[in-house]
Design a protein around this nucleic acid. Structure first.
Lengths: 165, 165
DNA sequence: TATTGTTATACTCTATAACTATA
DNA sequence: TATAGTTATAGAGTATAACAATA
């Protein structure tokens, strides 16, 4: 579709109000907010995560799913959704894609005919051995400005925020 | 969250090593990762933010834009994009919506005919006085599990992650 | 030639309703 | 009836290319 050019407004130039754009931006209020800082930090980590995990073609949520299947063989889709805060319809495509890549398999649940247990394939096990090592190594990289003690403190404090006792 | 059992892969019919879905999910590896914890914490804060900010009809990004305009009168779209990590095409709709709500106005930049400086309207100023108070108040609520010193430490450590010195 | 703001557009992520088959 | 998994789909959020006006 051709876009009509619509020069929206012809503003009068009022010299009375000096509409000056500041050249140094004051972000101090936003930076005082926990939510703002948590979001920026999460995005910074995820950015590095995407780079380092590109060889495995695993996005953060894919990795989370694969990691839970790794450490919880037979976990069901419903359990994955609860643990990760994913809605069931949105998990289906991820699991399908991981199964098509021969990284996981669905097996019938032994005691619930409605459910399917998820398990790693040998290829999935091999990939996750490397992927979890890479994820752990990336932690060190992204937290290189923090001491080991500070990193431990940071993670403990973050848990207190989303897992209030 | 303890893991109670951990059967490795087994044939579906083997009673000895059944492919049982674990009833307690082991999330210990994910919880050791900074990125996972930062994302979960950020989402927890944002959830409360959406509730408390609903009366102002400001989502987190809208609030960030409004707050920067509040403390930086005349700020340009380009500066907002740089400060908040938003892409210019995605800011246009937000600014249009805020302008339609009579919360901000575009004024011509005094020294750059291409740019538009953004300013609060009186209605925008009034709304932001309440909104920033509400934002500060919900900080206390969401960090009620932390002492004042812990909250300060947490924010300082988060800054170190996304603002490496 | 480079930059600001903009349009169009595509792709991803997330959310809701409804269906099936089992319980 | 309630739940696990699924389908279809709608709505946000985020991405790139390209254009007009201005520097």
């Amino acid at each position: 579709m051709p876009q009509l050019r619509m020069p929206r407004q012809a503003p009068a130039r009022s010299a009375a109000t000096p509409a000056v754009a500041p050249d140094a931006i004051d972000t101090s209020f936003l930076e005082s907010l926990l939510g703002y800082n948590a979001r920026r930090a999460a995005l910074a980590v995820i950015e590095v995560f995407l780079e380092r995990m590109a060889p495995f073609a695993l996005k953060p949520v894919d990795f989370s799913v694969m990691s839970l299947v790794t450490h919880n063989p037979g976990i069901t889709s419903r359990q994955l959704c609860t643990a990760l805060g994913i809605l069931p319809p949105n998990l289906v495509g991820m699991v399908n894609a991981l199964e098509r890549r021969d990284l996981i398999v669905r097996k019938p649940h032994p005691r619930d005919g409605r459910a399917m247990g998820l398990h790693l394939t040998p290829a999935g096990e091999k990939l996750m051995r490397h992927a979890e090592k890479t994820a752990a190594a990336l932690e060190a990289e992204v937290s290189r400005g923090l001491s080991a003690g500070e990193l431990k403190t940071l993670i403990a404090l973050l848990k207190k925020v989303y897992q209030p006792a």
